[in-house]
Design a protein around this nucleic acid. Structure first.
Lengths: 207, 207
DNA sequence: AGTTAGTTGCACATATGTGTGCAACTAGAC
DNA sequence: GTCTAGTTGCACACATATGTGCAACTAACT
């Protein structure tokens, strides 16, 4: 309910954002970068970081919140009827945001708990799970593996591809991811490219 | 060329192994566990660890060496003719050893360099790459994605499944991995289970 | 001009990990 | 028995990160 307060605060809020941003970048390079590193990367003094976040955990928690919100938002979009197209569209939409917060997975065990991470990506996971189940019922996907396992594989495949992309091995990461996920779900490789095309069109229309 | 030296050394060598083993377990739980933690886990005093490994890096390097050797060994086995069966057999063989050293990936960026890790899994990677290419030439795999990307996805899929297995979500991790990898390569899901069966038989015969 | 929120720069206590040095101990080898 | 390699238990110096306290500074708002 904080009304738009004047402007000594403006810089303050801006700094908060810059710190979160810098923290993201730092932790991407080294999961346990120091508060000093983050401060430097944010163009701020260490003491200032503590003015915004009482301690390291709070900072990480801030990051996790951002990530959670973005991930949750990424699955709230009109769903194509065809489950295959829906799955592809989901992957295509998730690509960028997922890359931004891929880092969080790297300090899963420590900083944030394993279960907190699960909590964060839960929306995406359940959404994917639903689409896969739906596609199976409709006969467009195969049921050669339990859905949970399959979804887990999709996650792994996804982050692996994102890492490759960050290393410049692949250009169209989202497209590749979508193809891989579809084929893994049991869609025939030739059919998969068509589906990705449809998904692309769908996203362009709805966006 | 060290001849079988008496036995004050016996305990020494045994300890070295126990330390490496403990280090593996510790680092699995927390990528930057302290030397003290490792020592405790090995049932040894911290000072003794330093008697075997001059510093932390040396210890990690020892781990990396073990891992490298095991990984390299895992791809040296008679190759089935059918590329699909070969791919499945490779995954099945790799499963256990890969799980043992999956941890190394978790401190890729820091302790060991990114490129050192690449170096370690290079044998497996090139082997997989070769099998995939061979399968494509024979028409049993599809070429809907560049081979490098595909192999990268397979790696991601694999470790994701291993993590699920370690959390008890899936029982037959190796089998699931093999299925996933085959389907991802473009083998039809129904055909995939047969292939895995063949691979299992092959491994039983040759082993 | 004066108030005020935010920033800066420094100093400090605290904690934790690393690597080393040294003397005492143990149990086989000779 | 004595020698010897390996282990133990402590002590130390050193480095690095955390979180706090405080006084000085800045710039906008009243």
């Amino acid at each position: 309910m904080e009304e738009p307060v004047p402007s000594p605060r403006k810089r303050a809020n801006a700094n908060r954002s810059r710190i979160l941003d810098a923290a993201m970048r730092c932790f991407a390079g080294d999961p346990d970068a120091s508060m000093g590193d983050v401060a430097k990367a944010a163009g701020v003094v260490r003491r200032t970081v503590y003015a915004h976040f009482p301690n390291r955990d709070a900072l990480v928690e801030g990051l996790a919140d951002e990530a959670g919100a973005a991930l949750a938002a990424s699955v709230e979009f009109p769903e194509p009827e065809d489950a295959a197209v829906a799955l592809a569209a989901g992957v295509l939409r998730l690509g960028p945001v997922s890359d931004r917060y891929r880092v969080l997975l790297s300090f899963a065990r420590k900083e944030v708990g394993e279960e907190r991470i699960s909590e964060l990506i839960a929306p995406v996971r359940t959404h994917t799970y639903g689409v896969v189940e739906r596609g199976r019922a409709a006969g467009v996907f195969s049921a050669y593996l339990p859905t949970v396992v399959l979804v887990g594989m999709m996650e792994g495949l996804t982050i692996a591809t994102l890492e490759q992309a960050n290393r410049g091995v692949v250009d169209d990461a989202s497209g590749a991811m979508a193809l891989g996920v579809l084929v893994l779900a049991g869609v025939a490789p030739d059919r998969a490219s068509e589906v990705v095309g449809s998904a692309r069109r769908w996203l362009q229309i709805t966006a």
